[in-house]
Structure formats: structure tokens, C-alpha cells
């Protein structure tokens, strides 16, 4: 487990944000793919498997919640951590109800994110092992 890198799918419409965050995560030893919209993300998800998805809720076009629903129907076991741009707890809570693992508010603290990613992957692994 620790030897294989955790593979993260990062979906965010702000490319600058997504690429920078991806770089920072890679510096910390994660493997990342970025998608700038929900469709892109789903396409990537169809091609390869990921350990976890980090999903922005506020996106133009296909919204974060729609993307979340699709992800949960195609790969229900993959944990999803939500990012939300504005302090709306409403979307966050809706996301939680749809099966997201946890949520973080932008701008985020990288330590919080990695903590959530680790616990999410750990939890899903635990589930798989049961």
C-alpha cells in the first residue's frame, strides 16, 4: 500500500489552481491527473482507476454535484473529497448525502487535504478488506 503511490483525480475548472495543486501533491508523493470539467474527469475515470477523486463543486457546465452523482454510480467505492468555492454548506451537505467522503473549503490548507486523502483511502481500503 505504501509502496504504490496514491492516485488522485483532481477535477477543477480553474486550470491554474488544479495544475498547481497537482504539482504540490506530486511533490508530496501522490500521483495526480487533472481535469478542467466534469466530463473530462469522467472520461479519465473511464480509462483508468483512481484511489480518490478531489472534486470542485462550483464548476460551469456539468456541476460538481452532477459529476459526483456520475462518479458514485460508476465507481461507488472510490472516495470523493469535495472542494467548495464559497462557504455554502448547502451544496457541501448535499454532496455528503450523495456519498462524498468529506469536504474542504477553498482556499485550502494542503495539510488538511492530504490528511483527508489519507484517511479516505485508508477507510476505503479498510472497507475493501472487510
Amino acid at each position: 500500500m505504501s509502496k504504490t503511490k496514491i492516485k488522485i483525480l483532481l477535477i477543477d475548472d480553474e486550470e491554474e489552481f488544479a495544475s498547481t495543486l497537482a504539482e504540490r501533491l506530486e511533490l508530496r508523493g501522490y500521483e495526480t491527473r487533472t481535469a478542467v470539467c466534469g466530463e473530462d474527469g469522467l472520461n479519465l475515470l473511464a480509462g483508468e482507476t483512481f484511489d480518490i477523486a478531489v472534486l470542485d463543486l462550483m464548476m460551469p457546465g456539468m456541476s460538481g454535484l452532477e459529476t459526483l452523482r456520475s462518479i458514485k454510480s460508476s465507481t461507488p467505492d472510490m472516495p470523493v473529497v469535495l472542494l467548495t468555492g464559497h462557504g455554502s454548506t448547502k451544496e457541501g451537505m448535499e454532496g455528503m448525502r450523495l456519498g462524498a467522503f468529506d469536504y474542504l473549503m477553498k482556499p485550502l490548507d494542503i495539510k488538511d487535504l492530504t490528511l483527508k486523502i489519507l484517511s479516505a483511502v485508508g477507510a476505503s481500503d479498510g472497507k475493501e478488506n472487510e
Binding site: 480553474e14 491554474e16 477553498k106 485550502l108
Partner: peptide, 11 residues
């Protein structure tokens, strides 16, 4: 403002 702020944060 929040989105650019997030970018600045990440950069």
C-alpha cells in the same frame, strides 16, 4: 475573489 485567492494560495 475566492477563486483567484485559491490560486494564489496554491501558487
Amino acid at each position: 475573489i475566492n477563486n483567484p485567492l485559491a490560486i494564489i494560495n496554491e501558487k
